[in-house]
Design a binder for these strands. Structure first.
Lengths: 116, 116
DNA sequence: GTAGAGGTTGACGCCAGCGTGAAGGTCAAG
DNA sequence: CTTGACCTTCACGCTGGCGTCAACCTCTAC
């Protein structure tokens, strides 16, 4: 299928799909005219990508995870990728740090707003 | 005083002080040679700026309301600036939204990590 | 053939507070 | 005169997923 069709099927913009290809997350075939030619399985793949982006992973990390899945085969197993475990842990740490930072900011804002 | 002296007195980098001037938050005098010449009161002003940045305000907002905030020692207080209240409320809303967003991200990350 | 819908590859813009050289002027001290 | 410390004004870099032209090619329909 063409890019706009995949865009409609996934709810992701065509620009985003090209961006994923730039980052090596999605590698469609090409027609004779140079048009991108996506398969049905790419719908699922895009859903996976979106899920991981929503979980705070960047595209570089996502690419490593997808490569991992490809090697593993059918069932996605994180035990095949020990490095990914550490990666997810560090991401969780960063999120926790962000949250703590945000709470401190809210605290200071409250102090500012309640002053006077 | 010169910029490095104010930087030491406030714990803020010279680059940041120049940045505050670019944004119209701090307007030092100039010596004959073009050197920035800060006054003692600028030490307090920088403390006010840092307090507001720490509370999540951007430089444009800070410029509008800088004169409304006084820092007595370590504790900021507000003088009469009615619009500032509304501004602070909207900032508080944005912070709350960010926090909710962050929690959703953590939730999705947990789901991903436990999917192995 | 021509209009129009849709495809392609760049490449800059965004949000924002600075970090970090680059290139060069000022000034007290040896 | 010459270090060398400190000052000045640009101006790009950073973080990063994607919006948004721009300039141009492809295919279908009338």
């Amino acid at each position: 299928m063409q890019i706009s069709e995949l865009a409609r099927a996934t709810g992701v913009s065509a620009r985003a799909l090209r961006h994923y290809e730039d980052r090596g997350l999605l590698i469609p075939g090409r027609t004779g005219a140079g048009y991108r030619d996506y398969s049905e399985s790419d719908v699922i793949r895009v859903a996976q990508i979106r899920a991981m982006i929503g979980a705070g992973l960047n595209t570089a990390t996502i690419q490593r995870y997808l490569d991992c899945v490809r090697v593993d085969g059918h069932r996605p197993s994180l035990t095949m990728c020990p490095d990914l475990r550490a990666e997810l842990d560090s991401i969780a740490e960063r999120l926790a740090a962000k949250q703590a930072d945000l709470r401190r900011t809210q605290q200071r804002l409250n102090e500012l707003a309640s002053a006077g």
